[in-house]
């Protein structure tokens, strides 16, 4: 286990370095640059050159690269080009918000999808085809709806028509109740997709276990159906479910970008879209590296958990 973890950690470091390098050089292939993107209609010629110099874009590219690496290692992310604000400061505000949304989504997803998936599996096992098909089919349908579409429908329904949740407003962790109320809609939109995925996976996993011998044994011993279902079947189906929770982080991060944009949540996704719009290299490269690091680390821990849960797994 220890050697495995160490190996995996080393791999993590190599991957991260690769990510950093790839991102840095790719962003510099952009036609035009931050200065001309910023200038828009108003600047040309000399004025533009001056702006470029001010932004440090005229240094040789490898100097910029080395400086960037040094700064990353010392956690000095520098300042954004267009606003001159500390990127570290921006990140420290945005990360908790995005993280809170991600965690809330996962919690909500687990609470709803696991019983739903187990129910579907049970129904399928008992031969109630129609009900099972409705749940599975519904889950698949929802899974495939583009999130920007769901977001707007939810806004119109829950916010405008029913008046349950706000569409905009301050997002601050200082007041947890207000914060939850504010992020409720985005979390709901994100969860819908996640729930669909997770419910289907739970169903498959539980269904497989239900036909195993020991379940039959448990039944024959006269235990209640519920107990059989949740104590035995679900427990044994936990392994694939845990893995999927970890792995679905990727699609969750995808989702936050769009949802944050629509609901104007000042998280990492909003920062990223801002950065791309203003071609702020400094900001975009830091953010992408951050996303990647986040994602890779979650995968790393998922692997460890998986390994722990199931020592048979060979990597």
């Amino acid at each position: 286990m220890f050697t495995y973890s160490l190996n995996r950690l080393l791999q993590l470091v190599v991957t991260t370095l690769g990510v950093v390098t790839l991102v840095f050089f790719t962003l510099r292939l952009i036609p035009g640059d931050a200065a001309s993107a910023m200038a828009g209609d108003t600047l040309s010629g000399e004025a533009l050159d001056r702006l470029r110099e001010q932004m440090g874009l005229n240094k040789p590219i490898w100097v910029q690269y080395i400086e960037y690496l040094q700064n990353l290692i010392t956690l000095n992310f520098g300042e954004t080009i267009t606003t001159g604000l500390s990127i570290g400061g921006l990140l420290s505000k945005a990360i908790p918000i995005t993280l809170a949304i991600a965690v809330a989504t996962i919690v909500l997803t687990i609470i709803i999808s696991i019983p739903l998936g187990t129910l579907a599996a049970y129904l399928a096992h008992k031969g109630h085809k129609t009900l099972d098909n409705i749940i599975t089919g519904g889950a698949m349908l929802v899974d495939l709806m583009p999130s920007f579409w769901t977001a707007l429908v939810f806004l119109l329904l829950f916010s405008l028509t029913l008046g349950l949740f706000p569409a905009s407003g301050t997002v601050s962790l200082d007041d947890p109740a207000a914060f939850l109320h504010r992020i409720a809609l985005p979390v709901l939109v994100l969860s819908v997709t996640q729930i669909a995925t997770m419910a289907r996976i739970t169903r498959t996993a539980v269904l497989e276990i239900l036909s195993e011998d020991y379940i039959r044994t448990a039944r024959s011993m006269g235990w209640s159906e519920l107990r059989v279902l949740f104590r035995h079947a679900l427990k044994n189906a936990a392994l694939p479910i845990v893995t999927v929770v970890g792995l679905s982080f990727g699609s969750l991060l995808n989702g936050t970008i769009i949802v944050e944009f629509i609901f104007t949540i000042p998280g990492l996704g909003s920062l990223l879209v801002n950065g791309i719009n203003s071609r702020d290299y400094q900001l975009v490269q830091t953010l992408i590296v951050f996303y990647a690091l986040f994602f890779v680390s979650v995968n790393f821990f998922t692997d460890l958990v998986y390994k722990r849960l199931d020592p048979r797994v060979q990597f």
Partner: peptide
């Protein structure tokens, strides 16, 4: 000044009285 970039969201915010 509340930053709301999406036009549809901005319109809903006004109709709901959030701005």
């Amino acid at each position: 000044f509340q930053i709301i970039k999406d036009e549809a969201t901005g319109t809903i915010a006004l109709r709901r009285g959030e701005v």
